[in-house]
Simulated scan of single mutants.
Amino acid sequence: MEYQNLITIEPGKRSGKPCIRGMRITVYDILEYLAGGMTETEILEDFSELTVADIKACLQFAADREKKLFIVAL
């Protein structure tokens, strides 16, 4: 999945944190909901403007960031 079109970073929005499609919902928000036990379905019910692709993009973004941290550490 290519998350680059779904995850945006704007300096004036949410202090420059990665957000979903320019909205004020951050990647961190979604990851925190998932880590807290919410299902994709529950997140989508609570945030009708989100899609399954948005949630997958957050996971891919986080995986990419983790991979980059690992590579830098080497």
Results as ranks from 00 to 15, higher is better:
M1L: 09
M1Y: 09
M1F: 04
Y3H: 14
Y3G: 10
Y3E: 10
Q4S: 15
N5R: 14
N5L: 11
L6N: 10
L6A: 05
L6Y: 02
L6C: 12
I7G: 06
I7L: 07
T8M: 05
T8W: 12
T8F: 03
I9R: 14
I9L: 03
I9S: 11
E10I: 12
G12R: 12
K13Q: 15
K13V: 15
R14F: 01
S15V: 11
S15A: 14
S15Q: 14
G16Y: 14
K17G: 00
P18H: 04
C19W: 01
C19T: 15
I20T: 01
I20Y: 03
R21N: 14
R21F: 09
R21L: 10
G22T: 06
G22Q: 00
M23D: 10
M23S: 15
I25F: 11
I25D: 02
I25P: 07
T26G: 07
V27L: 00
V27W: 07
V27G: 02
V27T: 05
V27D: 00
Y28I: 08
Y28E: 15
D29I: 02
I30P: 00
I30N: 13
I30K: 01
L31R: 15
L31C: 14
L34G: 07
A35V: 03
A35T: 02
G36F: 03
G37F: 02
M38E: 03
T39S: 15
T39P: 11
T39M: 00
T39F: 05
E40G: 06
E40M: 03
E40A: 09
T41P: 04
T41K: 14
T41N: 11
E42T: 09
E42I: 01
E42L: 00
I43S: 01
I43L: 12
I43H: 00
L44P: 03
L44C: 12
E45P: 13
E45W: 01
S48W: 07
E49F: 06
E49S: 10
E49H: 01
A53T: 03
A53M: 01
D54R: 06
D54I: 11
I55C: 00
I55F: 05
K56A: 02
K56M: 02
K56W: 01
K56E: 09
A57I: 07
A57T: 11
C58L: 10
C58S: 13
L59S: 05
L59N: 12
L59F: 11
Q60I: 12
Q60A: 10
Q60Y: 15
F61I: 08
A62Q: 11
A62L: 00
A62H: 09
A63P: 09
A63D: 03
A63S: 04
D64I: 03
D64G: 13
R65G: 05
E66N: 04
E66R: 14
K67V: 03
K67N: 05
K67M: 10
L69R: 13
L69P: 06
I71D: 15
V72D: 02
V72S: 07
A73H: 13
A73G: 13
L74N: 04
L74E: 15
L74H: 05
L74D: 05
L74R: 14
